[in-house]
Design a protein around this nucleic acid. Structure first.
Lengths: 233, 233
DNA sequence: GAGTGGTCTAGACCACTGT
DNA sequence: CAGTGGTCTAGACCACTCC
């Protein structure tokens, strides 16, 4: 007979969480093996596995093979946050989307961009600057470098109508990359583009993306004052 | 015979990603059912399910039951970021951790905090302000409200030695909550606590946590200038 | 070498949802 | 009502790692 209320892998997950928060299992402690838990909960090992795998992806437990059975948390949590396309984000908030290209320079060499994208120093880039608008008001300012060695097609694209953001989504092999979030004081250019005061605090996202063939693009996006991103745990 | 190189649920995932980026399957389009894919890849449906479930959790595909079979992406990506304990974060960066409690006020009523935590207007709170230090330098300033109705134990805790951050981890039932990230101009208090200029751009995290018994705590953390959080996709 | 987690399979039942 | 994804089971093999 299974304990009352323990149903499915989610039920098992909840029971494990309960034991952790009730201090029955303490941070750093090893917990029983999948087989033992399956016996206890009277279910298949795969079900326990699913629960523990999910807990591991949330950072609640750590799993290694063999005697490093399962270690309970050294408490870290993971939050997942959505990285939408700018136009979708604005339209979801009920705003009318607008886009204005400010700068488009082809075949630029930039040490900064090369280092950022870990590309050879003489790599040719397409440099773009643009503003995304919500109901006509500046929403975000985007400063982007596109690697023309790995993405020569971009050379012939006029980014006046379609933002690089959207074009890349539809035209680029699946990407990996890093993302950073931080806060910066608005530079003169950014203040001008976003119609805010110089020095105002702006939320910034920097990201690089790369494919199997090499680095693709690096972008720095600063949002109009007050922007925030939100997620639930 | 299975197609060359397609092995396991990860292989299936990669093949699906390849088809998406190769434009064989386009954003918004329905893709074959699990059963059909299992036949094609010559594997069990559970294996296909695992691949598709993972893609769904990354935001690459959307899944609904029945005819809303599987819709390929309206391209959103999800990043997961770690939410560590302040002390661990600082120590991982190689800094010596320090902590200084600035304010501790018990049985405070605050309309702002009540609204923030969706608690009744006359809820009693414990109000804390503290600074986290890395190698003696201000690292983050924390302004926290703890709901004494749901967590009366907190009343008797002296948070001078152990940060609320850590105490809560070890003493509070498993939590849900929201997190927001934004950028703010340093207030006078924050500038003082962080030894920076008033008005400087600071990275801010706001989060609330709640348990089954009700809301627990709300906290606003501002980091010293230059702080950034990082993740990979 | 033995034990553990990672994964796969073949089959099954259920819940939801569009027709 | 029928079809789809969500989940569970019982059994199996493999890779890695600790002893």
């Amino acid at each position: 007979m299974r304990a009352a209320g323990i149903k499915g892998w989610q039920g098992i997950q909840e029971e494990i969480l309960r034991r952790i928060t009730a201090q029955e299992w303490r941070p750093g402690q090893l917990i029983p093996t999948e087989i033992d838990l399956a016996r206890e909960f009277n279910c298949a090992r795969a079900t326990v596995n699913r629960a523990l795998r999910n807990l591991a992806s949330s950072g609640i437990v750590e799993r290694k093979r063999k005697a490093d059975t399962r270690i309970a948390m050294l408490p870290i949590r993971r939050a997942t946050l959505a990285i939408p396309i700018m136009r979708h984000e604005i339209e979801r908030k009920g705003g009318g989307y607008g886009y204005k290209l400010l700068v488009r320079s082809c075949d630029i060499r930039s040490c900064t961009a090369s280092r950022w994208l870990r590309a050879p120093a003489d790599t040719a880039f397409l440099h773009l600057q643009a503003v995304h608008l919500a109901d006509g008001m500046p929403y975000a300012f985007e400063d982007r470098w596109i690697n023309l060695e790995t993405l020569p097609r971009a050379r012939s694209v006029d980014f006046a109508q379609v933002s690089a953001n959207e074009w890349l989504v539809g035209n680029v092999p699946f990407e990996a990359g890093d993302i950073s979030f931080s806060a910066v004081d608005a530079s003169r250019d950014e203040a001008m583009a976003l119609q805010c005061e110089e020095g105002q605090a702006l939320f910034m996202i920097e990201r690089t993306t790369r494919s199997a063939r090499g680095s693709i693009t690096a972008v720095r996006i600063v949002f109009a004052p007050g922007h925030q991103i939100h997620t639930e745990i």
